[in-house]
Design a protein around this nucleic acid. Structure first.
Lengths: 188, 188, 188, 188
DNA sequence: CATGAATGAGACTTCATTCAT
DNA sequence: AATGAATGAAGTCTCATTCAT
């Protein structure tokens, strides 16, 4: 038996939601894989919706934390800061790729509540600020920061989707290459 | 009455699948929006699964057609060819953004059959060839072509996701800028 | 094309009802096997129920006709009359075994109307009279005629069920033997 | 509340299947009569088909058990053994007439699986052996044992069908009379 | 806390029947 | 007369949720 059933439920649910989507994942599926009774699930979460929202918010939170860990506030060198953020994203993904894919496929869905949407938007703001600073400094192309995020984040997520699907094997070389690509995409 | 009920069903289903996912979309939902009886749907498609597979394959087919339309075979200039493909993708998306988002969110899902997966893979091969040619010519960075596709396609799709979500307004300026970004990402 | 669609519908329906029962047989099944459109069926019969009732009544009628054909009214010899009826039943079954099995499995069912039930009861009365006469004459055992009919008719139908199922091959020898058995069962 | 919902479901389903046939009986019908939710039915049985197969096999099993209970193995007197089997069938029918009628109307139907067919065939073999022994001893008429079973079993079932339909009142006298008829039918 | 039997709303699907052609 | 597309009621089955143990 595991010490923490809640933890088991969360990690199983995250994986299943990431793989099959919210509606394609059933409570019995989660319960069975987490080796708990279906009723147990309802001791920890009021409903399926509250579970998905809890997961979403805590994933964003962890993602945000990792991304800001050891952030080089001291410097004003945007390329260095971009580099830092990128490799922290890599680090986060290595810890829990399902969290990345879960976030990606659940953003803006009809079952997310206001709080989830707010948390996600706050998270985006951190990135927006970084990029806007680069635009002002003239080191990043002058496009709406949301578009720039879409480019970098879109590329990043899709890369890990094909890695997770087994269509590409992860290697330091490739990751470094992709980082360069992403920076080249948006730098002036 | 509409001339073609099958067409109505397909276009409604495409939109709903793109917005809510396969499992989040119900047959009654589709039927109601398409203004047909639920039974009618089953005159045209054997099952919900056969509907989603039909849609998937025909979307890929259309996408593939548009992308290869007027392709500059005469030249060997990869940048020009890349540019062509990119703007054909833009054209396709303008015709039917739901098709783009539908494809993106349904690739590799458990309800797709072998034929759907094959059709999608064939489609990717066209892109792979183009990029591999560029790598050989030394004008595109030497990374696995799947990674390069992920970068460009991932960026592209995510851009249109936020446009569709109303978080960014489409403009020729932005699209041109993004095209430049994408090319800069992968060129040497 | 067949001359008579109604005939095709009836013969297909009879066979299917006999094999799969009323509820296990669908209108599309019948239409397809009879090579007509489903709508065509409704030109000949008001509803599925009216079709099954029509079939039931016409089967009983034919059965009754055959059984009374060349009936030896001149004699009062019950054994001879019994023999006649038995072999007329054999003759009827040889013409259309499905009719026999259809009648057997549809008697007394909830979808039969009053008229069908009446027709069947009238048919039984003919048999009852014959057996009652034999009882009065002291050549048939003194049991309720319905019980005697159940014995003979039950034996007869079940015999042809296993013949139809391919578990027994019909032969004159066996039929003669069974006739003897049936007579021995009820004679004094 | 009842102690055993599964038992309630089974007994209600047996009765309804016997009366209306498999396709004429719906899951909501069964659930309502058994006073359970429709979903409950699916906790006990995977599908309607698995329910009917389970019922079929357990009915045959019970029937077989009752028929072989206290079988006079010590004697080689076939008439006595026949008599025993017949009255054990009567006993079984008195316990659960629906089981008898259910078996009769569901044999060989398209929804029965291989196991069900096998169980039924094994059951028939017991009867075949008994009759074959009688034929060898020269006390039973020389006809294929399947034909003899058809005669006796067909007569027996049909008798109880009309009793169940209220067209004949059961009495010891009649049952004894019918037993004599059945024996007379097949003895030499 | 933990469970899983129980439930009924609602999912997918079928089918008797109608009707425009 | 003949058709089959169209329909919605009703069938089988699933699933989020509750609750007695």
């Amino acid at each position: 038996m595991t010490i923490n059933k809640q933890h088991d439920i969360l990690s199983v649910a995250l994986k299943l939601f990431a793989e099959r989507g919210y509606d394609g994942t059933t409570i019995p599926m989660i319960a069975k894989k987490a080796k708990v009774g279906t009723g147990t699930l309802y001791h920890y979460f009021k409903s399926k919706e509250s579970l998905v929202n809890f997961l979403f918010q805590s994933c964003i939170e962890k993602f945000s934390e990792v991304m800001q860990k050891d952030f080089p506030y001291s410097t004003t060198d945007v390329p260095e800061q971009f580099r830092h953020v990128f490799f922290q994203m890599v680090k986060f993904t290595k810890i829990d790729i399902h969290a990345l894919l879960f976030i990606d496929s659940h953003v803006n869905q009809y079952y997310l509540n206001e709080q989830s949407n707010k948390v996600f938007n706050d998270f985006l703001n951190v990135l927006r600020e970084l990029l806007d600073k680069g635009i002002v400094q003239g080191v990043i192309v002058n496009l709406p920061s949301d578009a720039l995020i879409a480019i970098v984040y879109g590329a990043f997520v899709r890369l890990y989707k094909i890695i997770e699907a087994g269509e590409l094997e992860e290697s330091e070389e490739i990751i470094n290459g992709v980082e360069e690509c992403c920076w080249n995409a948006i730098r002036i």
